[in-house]
Design a protein around this nucleic acid. Structure first.
Lengths: 336, 336
DNA sequence: CTGAAAGCGCTTACAG
DNA sequence: CTGAAAGCGCTTACAG
């Protein structure tokens, strides 16, 4: 930075008016006559002035920043969610600080602190797995607008935007049962992950409704990744009576389960019916194309943005929950 | 926000010292004796004070914000890059404003303006396709630290971090030639995209080196997406003498080319050898697994972050270029 | 219609 | 070692 920043003082001097007048011109006040307006605008162009919104924010006690804390931007589900949040925020004149928590509650704490220091107007948080119940208490006490997203979080004080995991799992399980499967595995996900807890409940309930006994050997736990499904299927394939179908914790896992099946000489879709969760776009392009329950990541992102923007404008509004209904997408992997 | 923010004034009053002293305590000045320090820290805890970094930034004329402008966060290449930028920034005490330009130079202009208003310390820009040459001139004149990333941008005034597209395409083409192919298509990408221009040059040069005549009918242009490859292959399959192999503009395109081949009753890998660019993680899990040239998105992101952080600290340093060397990853899709 | 003054929350010479 | 004062770039009553 060679020369110092051009400020309204410079504009005022150049245009021969006071700082107040420049400020009023910037804010397009009707109290300013056209000639003054044009003269000041001319000086602004002549000097190459750029508004310093941070200074204005300090004075006005406002902020246009929305913090977004997600676990993993490289998961296409979160990428889509982020994109939708960013879009909705931009439309409303906000912009987003993006940070990854990498599922670490510690990192999440540090990030939270940093966001407050940087004076965000509010934040959207996808809680890291293992987030203690009181983590957001001081934020709430301070009146900071917060919207919990994606991960179910049993605290009615906060706005929430997420999918209906329970229903999603019921739909997926029901679909597989409808295709004649009785031994249906549930592959992947960490036991403490609340999304998984809900999906597992939906799975149980659908089994029960259909009079199918639950077999714990068919439920495999693992940290979900782009490869974890390989070991997940392998485990269940070793059973005396292996499953003929599987719900996978998410599409990520499902895609690697396909890979794992092939490593065992089996053909996904034919030798084992597969369905994932999330509805990420790449699921359409796998071979065979992957059945999935779309959770509508973009819609959830937009809901979260809408909720936080509303709360920033109306801090005392009653907390709202926006639960997005899932959609079953049947493709070849479940034998369509 | 019920009560107003707790400030250093409140701390000063509570601890019975002046604002200056509180400030010195916050910045851990050695001039403050332990007793005073502890007393002030006690008040900070008692009142639940949070540092207002925006105010400090205004006073100190600094900023910890790095703007990152990318085209599409839902492209896993950019997701990985973003993740790496965010990580490197956090390590150095910066945080990132993320914005998508969606390949629109207009939107990019608006975003640029907004980032300056919000007083970013510097920015990393993946220029939207079609960005006019003078877009960054005023930013540069103003001395704003800028790092151009990913897309080659022929302006030696700026720091640059990106892949070696030319070499990547040479490697990919050479590999296919080595496997006996003579009719090799180049599928997808927009003609004005500078990354594609470089990849095409590498492809030409490798053909030439191997004494293979260039056939323009084998080069297909299209806006790359998760589905665009379907139409791309279809077009080239209609030729009297169709290709036996294809370079795909990126992995996205390659995956949909696989899909397109199957729609024509052909088997990817066997009936047409395929290789992509980017090296995105999902390429390993396709069927057949996709050969690709890894451009090392994470490394590029980290390079970009390092460069911008260096420039923020040292505005007058000579512009640097960090060109990451690509890696050929051979899998079944090219007949390994 | 326009200007002088105070203040947002902080830091930083400068006194004492 | 600690306090009073000025100032970062802006906005906003309040005069005139």
């Amino acid at each position: 930075m060679d020369r110092r920043r051009v400020t309204i003082n410079d504009i005022a001097r150049h245009a021969g008016v006071s700082r107040s007048t420049v400020s009023l011109v910037l804010r397009a006040s009707p109290r300013i006559p056209p000639e003054t307006h044009d003269r000041v605008q001319g000086s602004i162009r002549a000097l190459g002035y750029t508004y310093n919104r941070s200074a204005a924010n300090l004075r006005q006690q406002t902020s246009q920043a929305i913090g977004l804390i997600i676990n993993d931007i490289c998961n296409p589900f979160f990428a889509e969610l982020t994109s939708a949040v960013e879009e909705a925020a931009a439309e409303a004149g906000f912009f987003v600080y993006l940070v990854e928590s990498a599922e670490s509650p510690d990192r999440q704490d540090r990030v939270l602190q940093s966001m407050i220091e940087h004076d965000v107007a509010g934040m959207i948080i996808c809680p890291a797995t293992g987030t203690p119940g009181r983590t957001f208490d001081t934020l709430h006490a301070r009146g900071l607008p917060i919207c919990i997203a994606v991960r179910p979080y049993p605290d009615p004080r906060f706005d929430f935007a997420g999918p209906d995991n329970y229903l999603a799992a019921q739909m997926a399980t029901g679909h597989l049962v409808g295709r004649g499967h009785r031994r249906i595995a549930f592959l992947g996900g960490e036991p403490t992950n609340p999304s998984r807890v809900d999906r597992l409940s939906g799975y149980f309930s659908a089994l029960q409704q259909n009079g199918i006994a639950f077999d714990p050997a068919l439920v495999v736990e693992s940290r979900p990744s782009r490869k974890s499904g390989i070991a997940d299927v392998e485990q269940v394939l070793r059973l005396a009576e292996p499953p003929t179908a599987a719900l996978c914790y998410n599409d990520f896992v499902a895609i690697s389960v396909m890979h794992g099946l092939r490593l065992q000489g089996l053909e996904p879709g034919r030798d084992m019916a597969l369905i994932g969760f999330d509805g990420m776009p790449e699921a359409e392009m796998t071979y065979p194309p992957l059945s999935t329950v779309s959770l509508h990541a973009r819609a959830i992102g937009r809901n979260a943005a809408d909720l936080i923007i509303r709360r920033i404008g109306e801090p005392a509004a009653a907390p709202a929950r926006r639960v997005e209904q899932p959609t079953l997408i049947i493709r070849q992997s479940s034998g369509a």
